[in-house]
Design a protein around this nucleic acid. Structure first.
Length: 434
RNA sequence: GGAGGGGUGGCAGAACGGCUAUUGCACCGGUCUUGAAAACCGGCGUCCGAAAGGACUUGUGGGUUCGAAUCCCACCCCCUCCGCCA
């Protein structure tokens, strides 16, 4: 949520920033907000004056009663003043709700260094490793997965519908081991605290990070309790300290967790639907940071490094793109996407999205800290980044390390944990499955 | 799900429906001091206002009243016990 005072003080700056995001409607909303804000303040002034009068007279009535004197005329007058106050308060609340509605759908302001444009205008800012080209016809992961017996799309679809893959055998193990390995790196080397968090959250929580109210159709919701399945662990992690007042020594806070992510992706039907590229449920290791405002820009670079470390150690080719203003999520002020090369599908896959949301989510979720003893509380800055999203990471591993005979080498850093250096043949255990 | 207890400022903890939240600790500023501590004075939530000042604030939302932390209703959360349960 944007700061109403910022809009009030620098409306032109806000308008042009929103236009850079391609939000022409939002820019017009600025005028509407200013208009409402003006009438809100006028009504508050009027109501406050009446309340001051009521407080004063009520005090007088109390004194008169103590002295045993009558105060019928004053009580009568205050009765009508009370009615006028109630009417004004009602109007104030309506206006405030309207402003709130608009603000909740107004996106964050991009940082100055974010370039204009849309999806096609992302700028590559870093690259690592050489994209693999196999000397043989590279198979896409769904073919590898099927022939190796580690991916079962049909049965997943049977129990839940399309977009709910089943991993089995070595595929399931590979993913679990990847999670453990990534979590350890973030915990031990990057200093994040490991958390386990709820996968169902309230409407308010989802509003705190920005998914609601605008994108209700993208999430799954439980009917009976109005609890929502998280689309990313960013939601519970970022909201964790909502309503608290942290002290300066508490910051920075860095959290890492792994959760399933549930996405209806209603609008994306037909795009990237093969295999594991776009699914309704997938696991993701997520990093979230709460930072002092002056540290947040630097923290974003750290987040990218922390995610990139994983890709480097796996020996995958990857690159970083800075998204253009028009491609940012509602809460983000700046986003880097990390993409990994997948030779089987012959393209780059987004495996991480690292964003700084400046104080946008902090204002929605009420995340504050006291910069120094005696100073006023300030909204902190929130950042989040995947490190990394699993199904696509598994895709990149399968497709990058496939051999001509259809087997897949296990990345060196995972071999001890996997207990093997290769996935080969159907991994249905003959002894146990019989 | 049932019974009981409880939600007040950063924390602790008071307040017969009426002088509109006592106090302590912590913190900030000042006086004093070579410096600090102690002591003393002031401050220490949000909003409107250029300011003076005013309004709001006792989990949330309603109600009663001239006036509600206090009375009534609904809801939320925490604690204890019981039931159910991975």
């Amino acid at each position: 949520m944007l700061d109403i005072r910022h809009i009030r003080d620098l409306p032109d700056q806000v308008r042009s920033a929103l236009r850079r995001r391609g939000e022409s409607d939002a820019a017009e909303a600025v005028d509407r907000i200013l208009d409402l804000d003006g009438s809100r303040r006028a009504a508050i002034t009027e109501a406050d004056e009446l309340k001051a009068r009521r407080n004063e007279v009520s005090r007088t009535i109390g004194e008169l009663k103590r002295k045993g004197e009558g105060a019928e005329d004053l009580i009568l007058e205050m009765r009508s003043v009370g009615e006028r106050i109630a009417a004004l308060d009602g109007r104030i609340r309506e206006v405030e709700e309207e402003v709130e509605r608009i603000l909740l759908e107004t996106p964050n302001i991009p940082l100055p260094e974010v370039q204009e444009g849309g999806e096609a205008d992302a700028v590559e800012v870093h690259a690592s490793g050489t994209p693999t080209t196999h000397p043989f016809p590279a198979l896409p992961h769904w073919e590898l997965g099927q022939s190796l017996g580690i991916l079962d799309l049909e049965r997943g679809a049977r129990i839940s519908g399309s977009g709910f893959p089943v991993l089995r055998g070595a595929g399931a193990r590979l993913q679990r081991i990847l999670v453990e390995w990534m979590m350890e790196i973030h915990r031990e080397e990057h200093g994040y605290e490991e958390l386990l968090v709820p996968h169902l959250v309230t409407r308010e929580t989802l509003t705190g990070t920005g998914q609601l109210p605008k994108f209700a159709n993208d999430s799954y919701r439980t009917e009976a309790d109005d609890l929502w399945l998280i689309p990313t662990a960013e939601v519970p992690l970022t909201n964790l300290h909502g309503g608290e007042l942290l002290s300066a020594e508490d910051l920075p806070i860095g959290y890492v967790t792994c959760t399933p992510c549930f996405r209806r992706e209603a609008g994306a039907a037909g795009k990237d639907t093969r295999g594991l590229l776009r699914v309704h449920q997938f696991d993701k290791v997520e990093l979230v940071r709460l930072e002092r405002p002056e540290r947040s820009r630097e923290a974003l670079e750290e987040l990218v490094r922390h995610a990139g470390t994983i890709l480097d150690r796996l020996g995958l080719a990857w690159r970083v793109a800075r998204l253009a203003a028009g491609d940012l999520g509602i809460a983000s002020a700046m986003t880097y996407d990390l993409e990994v090369w997948a030779p089987g599908v012959d393209r780059w896959l987004e495996v991480s999205s690292c964003s700084t949301c400046t104080d946008y989510q902090a204002r929605r979720a009420d995340l504050r800290f006291r910069p120094a003893p005696g100073e006023k509380p300030l909204y902190l800055h929130t950042l989040n980044g995947s490190a990394l999203a699993l199904p696509r990471l598994v895709v990149a591993i399968l497709e990058t390390f496939q051999e001509e005979d259809g087997t897949v080498r296990i990345p060196r850093v995972l071999r001890d944990r996997m207990g093997t250096d290769r996935i080969s043949g159907p991994s249905l255990s003959r002894s146990a499955a019989g």
